[in-house]
Design a protein around this nucleic acid. Structure first.
Length: 105
DNA sequence: TATTTGACCAAGA
DNA sequence: ATCTTGGCCAAAT
């Protein structure tokens, strides 16, 4: 085997997040879960440092209760991008959150 | 190596 | 339903 390609936690997060279909959202917790981890806080850090937009759609990652969570830019932009993806936000919450929520695997 | 910092979460009050 | 608290984990300092 040639060089061992050890991937960091962040890189794994980005890799999984890149699989999120357009028109859907996921949560920090779900991303962690998909990696068999409970580091949902660290997932937030990975999104904050996401160097791969738009390949990694970090704006479609929200909090477990359907609220928006954070964003590296004004939250206003996150809302705008979601709307562009066909996802509605009202009063700081994802509309029809449960229907929009994507679970990996 | 130890401490601090978050785009979090679940359970209490 | 909203607000507070403690716990959680990886990265950065």
């Amino acid at each position: 085997m040639a060089g061992k390609s050890k991937s960091t936690f962040f890189e794994n997060v980005w890799k999984v997040c890149a699989k999120l279909p357009k028109g859907k959202v996921t949560t920090y917790k779900e991303l962690a879960h998909a990696m068999n981890s409970r580091a949902y806080r660290a997932v937030g850090q990975a999104m904050h440092n996401n160097p791969h937009y738009p390949r990694v759609p970090c704006h479609r990652v929200v909090a477990s209760d359907g609220t928006l969570g954070g964003f590296a830019h004004p939250v206003k932009e996150k809302i705008a991008r979601l709307k562009k993806d066909g996802i509605e936000v009202k009063n700081g919450r994802i509309v029809d959150f449960e229907k929009r929520l994507h679970k990996f695997k």
